[in-house]
Write a protein that binds this DNA or RNA. Structure first.
Length: 311
RNA sequence: GGGAGAGUUCCCGAGUGGCCAAAGGGGACAGACUGUAAAUCUGCUGCUUUAUAGCUUCGAUGGUCCGAAUCCAUCCUCUCCCA
């Protein structure tokens, strides 16, 4: 049933290599849409091969937002993304077009569709480093105990080994005075911001997906992935975030002469498969999704039909 | 042909008489996720629907022993060295 108060949003997500890009371009063509990329790596300038960024030809005249727009030296976050994406969605609607939210970064998709409101103050790099140093000094267990004192409830939901989360929760409290538990409650809006419909693409036969991922890595190598990886390797400080992207860091041991190229490529393929698995876990958790199997059905037609009904 | 060594669970690899269904790692599978998310982290992995239980497993067969992945014999396979 249509919800006229809210803006319609068509979401296409799913693990890497399921064909989100090509499908969304085709759909955007027929539905007069523009695409907002939900990809934490494609948003950076350059890094075209490793992030599987679509070429102009593949975009086929469809406008892509939040893609290839940020210098790699800058950090970006889910909170930033949510803001930018909201703006983009409103612009697209204002132009009388259909907004497509397309990508594989689950956290970004959720931030937008759930309308999470993150705390106002941006993370303070210095504080973050200070906390990281503290962790180095007193150890993760001690940090976890600290978190237990601050916010026992949240601590119970975080594994002590997950230093990242423990540190972030401590950071949030030190910076804003809010505990993570409080933030979790505060950030949820009463109502979802968009009248969205979420399509999750996947392969029914996982073996097929994994093969697809493997051959895609081979294609990237043919396209010159090594050159791109070398650039990231030589400029790690400039490519802060990119240096942790799958596709570059796996090749580093080869540049260091520690491993053969074949070994690195195998590891790269494996990391990509593992990543796809994590994406599946995330998308499985989303509620009210339409799960589509690209190896079993005509997804384009199914989405068209459901979308028309939905609007 | 002679000599040396090796065969362990999906893979690598530890284990040399009982505490071994077998360390550790990898993979696979499952999961978590609120400003690093392509990141970070967790669980699980012989079978028996539950097991402080039973069964099957450490190249094969046979043996020693109360008891064998571990000792002995034979066989099979592989690697290396000499010819």
């Amino acid at each position: 049933m249509a919800d006229n108060d809210r803006k319609s949003l068509l979401v296409i997500c799913g693990p890497t290599a399921t064909g989100k890009t090509a499908l969304s371009v085709r759909l955007a063509k027929s539905l007069n849409g523009e695409i907002i990329s939900a990809d934490s790596m494609q948003l950076y300038k350059g890094l075209n091969i490793g992030t599987a960024k679509p070429t102009n030809e593949e975009m086929n005249g469809i406008k892509h937002h939040l893609m290839d727009f940020l210098e790699p030296k800058y950090n970006f976050s889910a909170a930033d993304y949510a803001q930018y994406a909201d703006k983009a969605i409103n612009n697209i609607i204002a132009c009388g077009k259909t907004p497509f939210l397309v990508g594989g970064t689950g956290q970004y998709i959720s931030a937008v569709t759930q309308g999470l409101s993150f705390v106002c103050s941006k993370p303070d790099e210095k504080l973050r480093n200070k906390i990281a140093d503290m962790a180095l000094e007193i150890g993760n267990d001690a940090m976890y105990k600290k978190l237990c004192d601050i916010d026992a409830e949240y601590a119970a939901s975080v594994h002590p080994n997950n230093a990242h989360r423990v540190q972030r929760a401590i950071e949030l409290y030190m910076q804003t005075g809010y505990t993570m538990s409080e933030q979790l409650v505060k950030s949820r809006p009463q109502k979802k911001p968009y009248n969205d419909i979420i399509f999750v693409l996947n392969y029914f036969d996982r073996e097929l997906l994994y093969n697809k991922i493997n051959t895609r890595v081979d294609i990237m190598l043919e396209q010159g992935l090594l050159i791109e990886a070398k650039e990231v390797y030589n400029n790690k400080d400039r490519f802060k975030t990119a240096a942790q992207a799958i596709g570059y860091k796996e090749i580093f041991p080869y540049f260091e002469g520690e491993q053969s190229l074949d070994e690195c490529v195998d590891k790269l393929k494996q990391a990509s498969r593992n990543y796809a698995k994590r994406q599946m876990t995330w998308f499985k958790r989303l509620k009210d999704t339409h799960n589509l199997y690209v190896d079993k059905q005509d997804c384009e037609k199914v989405i068209m039909d459901i979308w028309k009904e939905h609007k």
